[in-house]
């Protein structure tokens, strides 16, 4: 009879272990999909920003006749997103677009009439809002990747990860140029 009890308990423990491993496996699947979803959610915002840009440029063109170079840079950066194929290229193109937009908003400071334009104000606020949301969602994406990568290295999760070949994911990184100190020069005029 004792043998039966031992066998029953072993079976029970085995059942519990299998259930636990299933939970771990499902957790990995959920985490992987969460990361993909977080990435796609950033794309949604990038697309919104992409769609708002022509309107912004149209408003700016009327006032910034002498800043064609800046405007063209924005248009060019926007078109590069279309031609980008790989994830890395897309990321680079989006970063470039963010940079050109920053330059555009800096140049706008020289055009008080444009700054006062209600259409421009509305569009620039909208784009700033989207930029903030993009930043938040990048953080969220990085948080999701960190949780996933941590789980990959934790015991007993790493056993399941190795068996089912779950590999680590890359964090969203910024360009090396953005890590450099900002050089500020004061020109005496």
């Amino acid at each position: 009879m004792t043998g039966w009890i031992v066998l029953g308990v072993i079976l029970l423990l085995l059942l519990g272990l299998i259930s636990y491993l299933i939970i771990i496996y499902n957790g990995f699947v959920a985490l992987k999909n969460n990361i993909n979803q977080d990435w796609s959610n950033i794309d949604v915002l990038l697309k919104q920003r992409y769609d708002e840009l022509p309107k912004l440029i149209k408003v700016c063109e009327g006032y910034m006749q002498h800043e064609q170079q800046t405007l063209e840079a924005v248009v060019k950066a926007r078109s590069q997103i279309n031609s980008a194929h790989s994830e890395g290229e897309k990321l680079q193109a989006q970063n470039l677009l963010s940079d050109t937009l920053k330059s555009l908003f800096m140049v706008v400071e020289r055009y008080p009439d444009l700054k006062a334009d209600s259409g421009f104000r509305q569009l620039s606020n909208r784009i700033s809002e989207i930029e903030d949301q993009i930043a938040d969602r990048r953080e969220l994406y990085n948080a999701a990747v960190t949780i996933y990568n941590t789980r990959l290295e934790q015991f007993p999760d790493l056993i399941i990860a190795r068996i089912f070949n779950f590999t680590d994911r890359d964090l969203w990184k910024i360009d090396a140029a953005h890590r450099q100190d900002v050089e500020v020069s004061f020109q005496h005029g």
Partner: peptide, 17 residues
């Protein structure tokens, strides 16, 4: 595990899901 696996969103940028 679900609580541990879900990162915290900011209210401003809450995505659907």
């Amino acid at each position: 595990r679900q609580i541990e696996n879900t990162p915290t969103s900011r209210v401003r940028s809450v995505a659907m899901g």
